[in-house]
Design a protein around this nucleic acid. Structure first.
Length: 991
RNA sequence: GCGCCGGUAGCUCAGCUGGUUAGAGCACACGCCUGAUAAGCGUGAGGUCGGCGGUUCGAGUCCGCCCCGGCGCACCA
């Protein structure tokens, strides 16, 4: 048909958007290609070179453990780090990222041993075992490196730091030597958390509290002797029935760890509490016992005691001088007093075993009680003479009742049951039941932990460093740590409180472990005398040898006997004696915590940049890496190793359960990147508040893809309209732009300011929200929609069109830069479509963050007018149009004209008249607008009096064949009878 | 048990120092457009702002108590 031909003819003159920037992201194939390109162009090195000499801003990587896959949690951590680094880099900082791995430690040793059948084969040397551990670690470093790189994270992947590097090991020893020289280190016999499954001491950070069922037992400890001055004795002696009482009198104690009963050496009471002497019957027998008054009824009820009578009530202090005989070892033990004895549970009489509890140990120290600990590394009772000796039994003890025989070699958990049964058989057991309580477990083996007194190396948290330079005020390390914490900034802010509380309460740090896969504590022992040798000189020698040969020198007795590890003059001093290397290694936390020294203060690229600007890890690191790093750095350098500390929460699954490798509800991060796209995953992490638990599932991430697509398509619309725009040639000056284009730039500036501020606070989800809002509302629904006519239909080089293009080009550039730290692949792809000036770098990651001083273009008046126009007038109009559409008289905006009635003198009239009717028609996407200013009341369709009413009316004017507008002047140009005047002018003679 | 943080539409989040009918995006329903098209635009529905009480002329916003979730500390004998 002729009409259709006509239309096609004019269509060719419409400047429709044109771009090769694909609408479909196709992340799965494009992302790997882009990363390959980055590798080939050595992007990371280019960035380093470009920022050389710039002000440094370093995020120091906390080393993930080189074991297993990198899952979503570790992946999120790396992504957040990369966002920060890319942002700071764009801001112009020299921001190198050196990833690292934690390579020593029990989990790897455990895995390797498990592959060997659980224990080190006798034929295998320690060196051979360590070699297997090393290979294992290397395998996972390579694997995880690939997984992390799949997230688009840039860094010095080819030269990471590894805690197994000899140089790193030497630095760990250096930190230790420095602590030692400053007096922080002590070797002492103390109760420590002991994992019998891992056969090693554990630090606080290596404990996990889990629920566990244990026997709760009430045991009678028979009263034997009472001192002469004993008030309790006088009480009983004053009674006529004293004979009967003495014959069946016991202290009633309570415990949930029956296996510690053999180590019992005392009973602790509260001097201030009220106790009773009670008579009762059970199983037909009459007995007597002492316990706290407040707990009598509860105990009596539990144990179903009959005819309970309180014979005497007295103060706990009256028990001074009471002695009892251990119920099965028959040793004579005292009653002591301790302030931690409470009346909440139990009997008010506390079974005290200094070998198996921290408080018991302290009580034991004060009361000069023996420390008994008959349990070996594996959590089993000693055997034979060793057991007798440890229990401090007299040589005459014959074990007539078979207790020792029963206990010998038993695991503590098994012993629980055995002891309870035998106590019951012998009649000591008043009552037993099972209780569930949370109990510390070994974080790796998940076996319950026990307290065991051993000799260990400790870092003393309350030590006062004598060095006036580092510690001018003579404070304890604990106090200085709290100062350093306060001097750092914490994101979120509550992190400061959390770690402060932990530091305030923490005990000395037990840094020794009894394992193979780690860095040795470089102490020697004189075999003949037991003297422990650890000096500045021996440390120096060992550090030097480890730096040259690695920590294996300590474990290589063939090539490196003790003498060779000692400085010659010291070896000479001990001539004739046998020196041996002691067998402890460092807690792995000590290694990781030394990274401030081994990496930040040593690495050629980072050396000058200590302390780091940021540490960023999961919030569990408040008691882990943050804490140990702080301790070691403050103790040896006097300052916190970081200025900012940012934490993220754990990753959880759709049920809100903590993701864990063992549960299998987490997937490897590279698999997710492959399936969903790294940028989408990055977008997802950046769009929610990572300071509270982060749910991560494929479904949730896919749901976020709409937001991602909106950014992509908005950008596409912008650059699609820039196909014929060359900034240098066509860009207009700011003051020459059309009002709506100026407004768009003003909005973009506001967005950039908000985004920058959010990024500075590391609140990426706020930044993403700003960007999303900007794309969805300001750009897509308001600005671009309205500018289409100018872009498509005005003459190619008309000021109006060039004005719109100037703004769009500028906004496209801004948008691309703002999303670059997050959508690392897509932004770089977008970058290729931003019209380039000569000065712009090849890759967006080499580009600068929008300079707020330059772009801070705001026009409040303009913002106001357009906000009202789009917010109020347009809404009014659309409602009006909707009413038409619902009657079936469908149609697009251009089929309508709008009558705006405004009350004269109203505020609305004030700003509305700043627009011409033609502008209003354009901005409201209708064909014509008529503004009527009236003195009469303005009434809306519901009959309410308002300042402004909008009334859409079907426009019967003929539509322009080219621009669809019904402007009323179609046909004015004789040459183009189907076109409006504007279009006729634009088309001219070209068709 | 103690402490910290949070509980706002189906989802992800805004709501500053208390002040008009509590917002946005997505999802949903309905519709428009077919010149951003595996796009775009519009309208709509949807919330007792965890619960109860209090302060106030007025509270999502302040106070108290309680419930739920997360976390930390302590859970010791």
């Amino acid at each position: 048909m002729a009409m259709s031909d006509e239309k096609n003819r004019y269509k060719q003159t419409v400047l429709l958007p044109k771009t090769d920037f694909p609408m479909k992201a196709d992340l799965a194939t494009r992302e790997p290609a882009r990363r390959k390109k980055w590798d080939e162009m050595k992007l990371y090195e280019l960035i380093r070179a470009a920022r050389k000499g710039a002000k440094p801003w370093v995020l120091h990587d906390g080393p993930p453990y080189a074991n297993g896959d990198a899952h979503t949690g570790t992946g999120m951590n790396k992504i957040l780090k990369d966002i920060v680094v890319k942002f700071r880099t764009m801001q112009g900082f020299d921001s190198p990222y050196v990833p690292g791995w934690d390579c020593h430690g029990l989990p790897i040793e455990h895995k390797v041993l498990a592959d060997l059948g659980g224990v080190k084969p006798p034929t295998m040397t320690v060196l051979e075992l360590r070699k297997k551990c090393l290979d294992y670690a290397h395998g996972f470093i390579d694997k995880q490196r690939q997984q992390f790189k799949a997230t688009g994270t840039l860094g010095r992947w080819e030269k990471p730091y590894l805690t197994i590097d000899p140089a790193y090991e030497a630095n760990v020893l250096q930190v230790f030597a420095s602590l030692h020289e400053r007096g922080y280190i002590t070797r002492a016999k103390r109760p420590v958390h002991w994992s019998w499954a891992a056969q090693s001491a554990l630090a606080e950070a290596e404990l996990e509290y889990e629920d566990r069922q244990d026997p709760s037992v009430y045991v009678r400890f028979p009263v034997s002797t009472c001192g002469k001055e004993c008030k309790f004795r006088e009480l009983v002696e004053a009674r006529e029935d004293r004979e009967e009482i003495w014959n069946s009198l016991a202290l009633l104690i309570w415990t949930t760890t029956p296996w510690t009963l053999p180590a019992n050496v005392a009973v602790a009471a509260s001097a201030g509490a009220e106790y009773v002497l009670a008579r009762y019957e059970r199983e037909g027998r009459r007995e007597h016992m002492v316990l706290a008054q407040a707990l009598l009824s509860r105990v009596a009820e539990k144990a179903k005691l009959q005819n309970v009578n309180v014979l005497e009530v007295f103060s706990g202090a009256d028990l001074k001088g009471v002695g009892y005989s251990h119920p099965f070892l028959e040793t004579a033990c005292p009653v002591v007093f301790a302030d931690y004895v409470t009346l909440e549970d139990g009997t008010g009489l506390v079974h005290t075993a200094p070998g198996h509890g921290k408080e018991d140990f302290e009580t034991g120290k004060r009361e000069k009680l023996p420390v008994v600990c008959p349990i070996d590394e594996a959590g089993k009772f000693f055997t034979g003479d060793r057991l007798v000796k440890e229990l401090q039994l007299s040589p005459a003890f014959e074990d007539a009742r078979g207790w020792l025989k029963m206990l010998e070699g038993q695991n503590v958990l098994k012993a629980n049951g055995l002891i309870v049964n035998k106590l019951r058989e012998e009649g000591w057991l008043l009552h037993t039941e099972n209780i569930t309580h949370s109990y510390p477990h070994c974080w790796r083996t998940h076996a319950p932990v026990i307290f065991r007194v051993t000799e260990q190396w400790f870092v003393q948290i309350d030590h006062v460093d004598p060095d006036k330079k580092l510690n001018p005020e003579g404070k304890t390390l604990r106090a200085r740590l709290l100062d350093a914490i306060h001097a750092s900034r914490w994101f979120p802010a509550w992190g400061e409180n959390r770690i402060s509380a932990m530091i305030e309460n923490r005990p000395d740090w037990c840094v020794s472990r009894q394992r193979y896969w780690g860095i040795p504590i470089p102490a020697f022992r004189v075999k003949e005398t037991g003297e422990v040798l650890l000096t500045r000189e021996t440390n120096r020698r060992v550090i030097e040898l480890v730096r040259q040969h690695g920590s294996n020198v300590w474990f290589d007795d063939v090539n490196w006997p003790a003498e060779k590890l000692l400085p010659p003059e010291i070896a000479a001093r001990y001539k004739g004696k046998t020196l041996e290397k002691m067998g402890d290694i460092f807690d792995v936390w000590f290694e990781a915590g030394s990274s401030f020294q081994a990496v930040m203060r040593e690495d050629a690229e980072l050396r000058e940049k200590f302390p780091a600007n940021m540490y960023l890890e999961g919030d569990d690191q408040h008691r882990g890496w943050f804490q140990v790093s702080l301790i070691l750095s403050v103790a040896t350098t006097g300052v916190s190793p970081f200025k900012h500390c940012l934490t993220c929460a754990f990753v959880v699954d759709e049920k809100g359960e903590k993701g864990s490798k063992s549960k299998g509800n987490m997937w490897p991060i590279d698999q997710g990147c492959k399936d969903l796209g790294a940028d989408l995953i990055r977008y997802y992490f950046a769009s929610l508040d990572t300071s509270s638990p982060v749910p991560v599932t494929y479904k949730l991430i896919q749901a976020a893809s709409d937001g991602y697509r909106k950014v992509r398509n908005t950008f596409r619309a912008l650059v699609g309209n820039l196909f014929d725009f060359v900034p240098e040639k066509h860009a207009l000056a700011l003051d020459k732009l059309t009002a709506i284009d100026q407004w768009a730039l003003s909005q973009a500036s506001a967005c950039a300011v908000a985004v920058t501020e959010a990024m500075e606070r590391y609140e990426f989800h706020v930044a993403m929200r700003e960007i999303t809002q900007f794309c969805n509302v300001t750009l897509s629904a308001q600005y671009i929609d309205v500018r289409k006519d100018a872009l498509y239909c005005e003459a190619a080089n008309s000021p109006k069109r060039r004005s719109a293009q100037t703004a769009m080009c500028w906004i496209a550039d801004l948008l691309c830069r703002m999303v670059a730290p997050i959508l690392v692949h897509s932004a770089d792809e977008m970058w290729e479509f931003v019209p380039k000036k000569a000065s712009m770098p090849l890759c967006v990651h080499l580009a600068a963050w929008p300079n707020l001083d330059e772009i801070r273009y705001r026009d409040d008046q303009l913002d106001n007018c357009f906000q009202k126009l789009f917010g109020e007038v347009k809404y009014l109009l659309e409602q009006s149009l909707e009413r038409y559409r619902q009657t079936g008289k469908g149609g697009k905006g251009l089929d309508f004209k709008e009558l705006l009635t405004v009350r004269r003198g109203s505020a609305t009239a004030d700003w509305l008249t700043k627009f011409t009717e033609a502008e209003l028609a354009e901005y409201l996407n209708v064909s014509q607008v008529r503004v009527v200013i009236t003195d009469d009341p303005v009434v809306n369709f519901q009959g309410f009096e308002v300042a402004l009413n909008g009334d859409a009316q079907v426009c019967s004017d003929k539509p322009c064949l080219r621009c669809y507008r019904r402007t009323g002047d179609v046909g004015a140009a004789t040459k183009h009878p189907e076109l409006c005047k504007r279009c006729a002018d634009v088309v001219g003679d070209s068709v």
